[in-house]
């Protein structure tokens, strides 16, 4: 199979399949949980649960930082995790080639970032992913909590970041192969997300929403 034939395969039928699986699977997982329903809460709330739910969804990623002693002990998780997520989300949506795909899918004018920014994000995301993976393998708590799922996801994302970097900078004459492998792995990731813990980004809204709702119900601000 020539590289362009492979490229055409991963870009057209496989990407399309991946996107179908992704949207279907993510909606399925989200609504499978949402439609389970919760019992009505008759206790009069002390604050405003709806406001707090929205507020927490917006500010939750920074909340853990106020726990200084936890931050000090798990700085790798906090800083690495933050860098990774910023990098991953930024790269997924704002790299020109990706942004054009998302524009097509969403119809929104998604901005495109210059290469220098995406390079920085990619290096930081890749580096922090490496560090986080090593940390995961060494920390006793994480050793207990981690399954194969996490390592596979880390490997997949690491390879995607690596091949993406390679394709933009260092590929040389193997450019189309590297690019195709990058897209192929990305397709795999898109398919893999609904089947794994990587779908936590949809549950974030539910879980943090409930947490904020509870905070509003109890009248605490944090």
């Amino acid at each position: 199979m020539s590289d362009v034939a492979f490229y055409d395969f991963v870009r057209e039928p496989f990407l399309k399949l991946a996107l179908w699986v992704f949207f279907l699977g993510i909606a399925y997982r989200f609504f499978r949980v949402l439609f389970l329903g919760i019992p009505h809460d008759y206790a009069k709330p002390k604050g405003n649960p709806y406001y707090m739910a929205v507020k927490k969804i917006v500010i939750k990623p920074t909340m853990g930082w106020t726990f200084r002693e936890i931050f000090a002990r798990r700085a790798i998780n906090f800083i690495g995790g933050f860098m990774f997520h910023i990098g991953f989300i930024g790269l997924t949506f704002l790299v020109p080639a990706h942004a054009l795909l998302w524009r097509e899918i969403t119809g929104l004018p998604i901005p495109m970032m210059p290469n220098i920014v995406s390079d920085m994000l990619a290096y930081s995301a890749f580096g922090s992913l490496l560090v986080l993976t090593v940390h995961r393998a060494l920390n006793p708590v994480l050793k207990l909590l981690t399954g194969k799922d996490e390592y596979f996801a880390n490997l997949l994302i690491g390879l995607i970041l690596f091949t993406g970097l390679l394709a933009t900078k260092w590929a040389g004459s193997g450019y189309i192969w590297i690019l195709s492998i990058h897209i192929f792995l990305a397709d795999l990731l898109i398919i893999y997300i609904p089947f794994s813990r990587l779908s936590h980004f949809v549950y974030y809204f539910l879980s943090v929403g409930f947490m904020g709702w509870n905070a509003g119900k109890r009248g605490v601000s944090f």
Binding site: R29, V33, L36, G37, R74, N77, L142, S199, H200, F210
Partner: peptide, 22 residues
């Protein structure tokens, strides 16, 4: 005992282990 709230908590865990330090 599973309802939406409980299920979303169970699904949302990303195994980061930060809770241990808390």
């Amino acid at each position: 005992s599973i309802n939406t709230e409980v299920a979303s908590y169970l699904e949302a865990c990303v195994r980061c282990g930060i809770c241990a330090e808390a």
